[in-house]
């Protein structure tokens, strides 16, 4: 491929632009355009001993390769300064974005989020504790209320019992009074009845004695009746 290298060396890149159009054609049909065509002609002539068509293929293709300045664009050293320059510009720009914008912002956000999460966890813990406290307080209140209710019930029961006792006592008292009254009345009635019995007995005894035709001392009759009634 040394031949194309020499051919390429003589050709300015700008001049080579029209060449690919001619690649498809035969050697005879290539339009001579300035020095390029002259060079191609020279190359073709130099290879004159081989079959013509084969030579044409090579030369046309080689000219096309020359248009790309080198076989691999990666190895075209003329573009290296350009790429390296723009790469450095790009890297500095990205470094600027990363160090001035991305890192502070994301670092701050991550730290803040970490803080928020920690705080939230702490407050959640605190709320849990508070909830436990509240539950304990509720239990205590419930127990207190129950105790209070018991107390109130006991008190009420006691007071009702006292009232009941008092009522019962009063009722008993009244009943006692009534009973005593009744007994007194009965005793009085009985006493009245005794007196009546003695009077009746004395009168009867007197009448009986009179009927027998005897006279009897009133006092003796009374004493005899008393003795009989008592007996």
């Amino acid at each position: 491929m040394a031949l194309e290298t020499t051919a390429r060396a003589g050709i300015e890149p700008q001049v080579l632009q029209p060449i690919p159009v001619q690649v498809e054609g035969n050697n005879a049909e290539i339009e001579p355009t300035g020095e390029v065509a002259a060079d191609l002609g020279v190359e073709a002539g130099a290879h004159g001993d081989g079959p013509v068509t084969a030579e044409v293929g090579y030369d046309a293709i080689d000219a096309h390769g020359g248009a790309e300045a080198a076989g691999m664009p990666q190895l075209d050293f003329s573009t290296f300064p350009n790429q390296i320059f723009w790469l450095l510009v790009t890297l500095f720009a990205i470094y600027f974005v990363v160090s001035r914008i991305a890192m502070p912002r994301i670092g701050a956000v991550l730290a803040e989020r970490q803080g928020t999460v920690t705080n939230d966890l702490a407050s959640a813990e605190e709320l849990k504790l508070r909830a436990q406290e509240a539950e304990a307080a509720y239990d205590k209140a419930l127990a207190d209320a129950r105790a209070e209710a018991n107390r109130i019930a006991d008190e009420t029961r006691a007071s009702i019992q006292a009232d009941l006792d008092a009522e019962l006592a009063r009722a008993d008292e009244q009943i006692g009074a009534k009973t005593a009254e009744s007994e007194a009345a009965i005793a009085e009635i009985r006493a009245g009845a005794m007196d009546s019995v003695r009077d009746v007995a004395t009168d009867t005894a007197k009448a009986i004695v009179a009927a027998f035709g005897a006279t009897a001392d009133d006092a003796a009759i009374a004493a005899a009746v008393d003795q009989r009634v008592k007996g």
Binding site: S78, T79, N82, F85, L87
Partner: peptide
């Protein structure tokens, strides 16, 4: 292509 040329790169 110079080092400062604006290219597709």
């Amino acid at each position: 292509i110079h080092w400062y040329t604006i290219t597709n790169v």
